[in-house]
Structure formats: structure tokens, C-alpha cells
Design a protein around this nucleic acid. Sequence first.
DNA 1: GGGTAATATTGAATCGGTTCATATATTTCA
DNA 2: TGAAATATATGAACCGATTCAATATTACCC
Lengths: 350, 350
Amino acid sequence: MAKVRLKDVAAVAGVSQGTASNVFNRPETVTPELRTLVLDAAARLGYTGPQPVARMLRSGKVGLVALLTDESAADVISDAYGRRLLAGAARACDAAGIGLTIVGDAAKGETRSGWSVETALADGFVLYCFAEDEIFERVRRRNLPFVGIDGGRRAGVVSVGIDDEVAAAEAMKTLTGVGHRRIGILSMELSGEGGGGPVDPDEQFSATYETTQLRLKGYRREAAAVGLEPQDLPTFQTFKDEASVANGVAWLMDRPEPPTAIAAMSDVIAMIAVSQLKARGYGVPDDVSVVGFDGVPEGAYLDPPLTTVAQPAEEKGEAAVEILLGTRVSQNLVLPAKVISRRSVAPKGR
Amino acid sequence: MAKVRLKDVAAVAGVSQGTASNVFNRPETVTPELRTLVLDAAARLGYTGPQPVARMLRSGKVGLVALLTDESAADVISDAYGRRLLAGAARACDAAGIGLTIVGDAAKGETRSGWSVETALADGFVLYCFAEDEIFERVRRRNLPFVGIDGGRRAGVVSVGIDDEVAAAEAMKTLTGVGHRRIGILSMELSGEGGGGPVDPDEQFSATYETTQLRLKGYRREAAAVGLEPQDLPTFQTFKDEASVANGVAWLMDRPEPPTAIAAMSDVIAMIAVSQLKARGYGVPDDVSVVGFDGVPEGAYLDPPLTTVAQPAEEKGEAAVEILLGTRVSQNLVLPAKVISRRSVAPKGR
DNA sequence: GGGTAATATTGAATCGGTTCATATATTTCA
DNA sequence: TGAAATATATGAACCGATTCAATATTACCC
């Protein structure tokens, strides 16, 4: 059974191809008789409707938004925070009747895998990746609209995010507010290049990891309010993996004066930290309080339930897509974050 | 700045359009001089590379696999089980260098939203939805390859799944094996139409919910081994939401002889059930043991950690895509499931 | 140097539709 | 009744590339 095209249907129905096209796209402009004629012919020939690709070639739109990320698509789906972003974006796409796809490993440009910044079908991009100039450049070359998430205030890029500095300050306040003064920080990525490890209080970092820096700044600002200087806040750079967080916990707790509280820059880090602390025999929060960042749902089920500062991740994804589609107008959208107090933080020295 | 096409680049470079095309697609077939000539012209004109849509029109492939589901895309991402499927599918797509997209609300055909079975760009479908004839018919019409997940043994449909009956039997055995004889079942959807509620032991159901039926059958078979008949296994149909599960728990526990153990057909149901039981003052597992189904990661963090029968969800998604792409050959692939014993099940009458 | 094989380049056909200016038929209205 | 307005249908142009048979060029060998 050979492939059947609109042209064939039109021929069999005895109408022009243009009319046949209208039957499928603007049925109201075609008389009912002709319409059924065409539909019948289509049914008889087994015509499956206009082929999406061809339709889109002409109309210029593909009906697809791409979420661009540094990680692999599978990782974004698995990650507690990335997943919420994704769900929000999906909701907005649903509402607009368009599709969503993930373009992963954005940074790996050389290989030009089949589904990359340059080759992916899309009407626009949502950028969920570190703000590397190179990526921006590649996205720009596509000549498609794009919106950044957590992207910072880069000139000319519209983005949605939260005020990370303020949010981090509030997280720190949950600790200092109940008397903690020996506080360790488990940071997200600050410098590229695998490393990890202790962070020098005076170190300066590239603009790539703006989010991390803002959170660090927020922690320090709030700590300063109770007289703690950066060097009083032992800080360890981790990644999302178990091993680096375990190292961080070990480094913090093996200090001469181990912290009585830990601020983790993400809930994922916090959750690993809690399990590491427990494994090392520390009670949470009896010996060590822990505050996370993000507000992922799993935090509520943790034992003990995790205190955190919740950011509206779904709404971020949703807003990004809406702005992209023009459904919502905004330049740099700053959404609110708020502290959720649960049991992983307790007053000091109980 | 007007749009610039390959044609323009070719003209400026002084070569034919065919050669220009080759520069981008088969660079090795073109002499270095010409290549740089074309590339220079492209750079000068601001040509951003071949437009994906057009490229795909001609080549016939779009480089995209679509996961088709009944639910909304956002729900699949949020759901603990669906998400794992998705992650596995994403991994396989990554490996193959193609993209992944979700087509949600598959059943809503009438509306023909912009991204539906008929309109989505895709080279093939992975079906994660209830096995309704109508949907199969619509997918078939696309004339694209497809693979079902948990789809049952429908003739002519290649699918990947587990042996639900055997797996459910093993779940039941975790209960009967430690002495439980008063066992309640919280079922997934058995009959469409919102309802929910107690299930008549003799009721027959449509083939649509095959997975549910197989699990029920497995439970009953194993229970029969210790002399329990279907009418001895009070069964309640729930959906994924909190309310219906709460109703189910209430119905079970308010019986004259409340169960000492509950078999839940999914971990999501089990997790809600546990929280409901605790809210009603029952100890888990002291008063009531609970076994789930699926093996979602969250189950391990639950208090108490959930006993369940784990199915290889990621691998299901991965295998489905691989079969779809021809990377892996198989007809009906049956993957293994295995019991994970944790603390939510305890011997009876402790 | 001539003939053949190998390699590069061209140009036109093609993918499968949508769109729009134009032609034709039908209504409306004074 | 006739002119203007409105509703339908047509056919060709076009979307932006890829592909492939045909041709031009270069290389190779005796």
C-alpha cells in the first residue's frame, strides 16, 4: 500500500488540492457536500491526515517548545527540582496546545547529536542551564525566542527566577534565629572542573554560577547580622552526587569545632547530608540542624521532615513557557520563595 | 535583516545549492576550499544552518519519539512511576541521539489540541496508556511504529512489561507468609467512570484495565494458597488521589473485622494509605502491615520504609524506545520484578 | 598520451503540504 | 432585475531544504 498524499485524495474526490487542504484546516470554508466528499475519499484511500512535518514547513511553526539543559534529559526528569520545573512547563504547554521536549547535554556542542540546540525542532527555548556565553550564542543563532530560568540578570535575556540572595538569607535565619553560631555550608557548584572541596572564604568566582554565588552571599549576609564572618562559615563545594556530599559532611564534622547546624544549598544535598549525618551517628536535629533549599516534595517525607526555603518551581517552568509564547508579558520575573519550617531544625544546645 | 536560505548562501559562495547542502551534511565530500568558501559566505550572511523542519521534510525523519499517555504530561512527570518510565525512555533517546516528547491526554481526540496523536511530530510512539481500541486505531492511522508499555498481550502489538500476575502473587505472599489472614486490597482503576468504591468479588471487568486485573488475579491466586477466597479479600477501587484512597482505608478499617494487612496495587496508593492509617491512629506495621507495588524510590524514605514489589520502570521505558528504534529486537518483552522487604510489613499479631 | 576509474560539482526533481490572488457561483438589497 | 457583496473553489507559487542522476574534473596506469 503506497503512501497516499493530499494530492491523491483531492484527485479521487475530484476537487483541487487547495480545497482538500481546507477541509482539514478550515473546514468551515468548504461546503458540507464537498467536505464529506473529500473525507470519504480520504477514508477510502486510508489517508491519515496532513503530514505534520510538511504542514509545519509551510506554516513555519512546529508546535514544540524545547527545554534546554546542561544535564541529560533523564537527569532532569529524575532530579527533584528539575522535575518540578518540567512539570510546570508541561502544564503551560498543555494549556497552549503545544508540545514539550527536552534538549539535554546542551554544552556538548561538538558532537552535534541528533537532538541539539542546532538541530532540535522547536518554536522556542526555555533555558535551564548554567549561563555560559557559548550556549547563549548558539541559542541566539537559532533565531528563536528564548527565556531563561534561574538565569540571572544577563543583559538582554528575559528570565524568571527568585531572589536567591534573599531566600538564602532567610534559610540562614532559621538557623541563627534559634541560636546556632557554628554553621557549616554545603554549597552547590561554584567553580567548574569536577573539583569540589573546601571553599576559600575570599575566593572569587566566575559569573557562570551566579545562582550559587547569590545564595552564598545571602547566607553570609544573614550570618553577618549575628556577627559571623565568612571565615566563620566553613563552606564545602559539592555536586549532586552522594560521594561529594559525604565528603563535605565528613570535612565539616571532623573539624575541631564541628558545626551544630548545616545550611545546604539544595534539598537534594540536604537529604543526602541528613542520611550521612545519621550514618555517622549524629542525631538530626538533636546534634545537628539542617536547612535545605528548594522545597521539593520529598523533603516532607524525610525523617525528620526537612526545613527548607521553598521556591515555586512549577510556577517558574510555567511562567517561562508563558512568557515564551507571549501569553504572559514580563521581563525579568521574580517569584517569591518562602521558608517552610519542619523538624530538621531545632534550637541550639538542647 | 531578511531571512537567509541555503540558496542565498550558495549564490554568494558561487556554488550550487547541492554543494552548499553537502557542506553541512557530508562535509567530507566537498573540497576544503569550497567548504571554507561556503562557510564564510554563511557566516557573512548570518546563516544559522539548515532549518530543521525543512531538512526533515525531505529526509522523512524528525528525530523525535513521542510518549503517548492518557494523563496530562505534567502528571506523568510528577507521578513517581510515570517519571521513571520517562527517565528510562529519555536515556534511550539520548543514547540514540534523538529527542523525546510527551503527548498527553491521548484520549481527548475530539479537541485535536495542537499536540495530539494526529498532529505531533514523531518517528514513533511509546504507548503508556490504557489499552483502548480507539487509541490504538488512531495511532495506527499515523502509520508510525509503536511499542506499548504495560500494554498486555494485545494481538499484533509489541509491548514491554512485567508479569503482573506473578508479581502481585509475590506481594501477597509477603503478607500471607508472615501469618496475615485478614487482608484488604486497595485496587487501581478497574472500571472507568470515576466511581471507585468496594469491588464485588464476582464482578467481571473490561479488558481495558488489564494490568489491574492481572494484579488482582495474582493477589487472589496467592491468597487461595492459604485458603482465602475472593470474598475473604475485601477490595476497594481507588484512583491516584488522596480522597479515594482515604475512602478505601476508611471502608476497610471500619469493617467488623478490619484487616491486619493491606495490599496496595501501587506505591503511590500505599503511601497515601500509610499516612491515612497513621492519621486514624493505627501503627504501621504494628497494627496493620502494608505492601505496595512498583518500587518507587520514595518508598524507601517513608516512615516506615515501604515493602513493595519493584518493577524495573526505567528499564521498561528504555527497552520500549530501543525496540521502537530497532536497536533491540524483541516481541513481547517481559522483565523481572522482585520483592523488596522493608519495614512496613511485620508478622501478624505481634 | 589515451583510456579508465575515482572524485567533485551541478541542477533539477522532490518531499507534502499551505496560502493567496483570482475566478466563479450564490445571495442580498435597492 | 441588476449590481454589489459574499461565499466557495481553483491552481500555481512557495516553504527550505535533500537527493541523485548526470556531468565535469582530476588522478592513475600502462
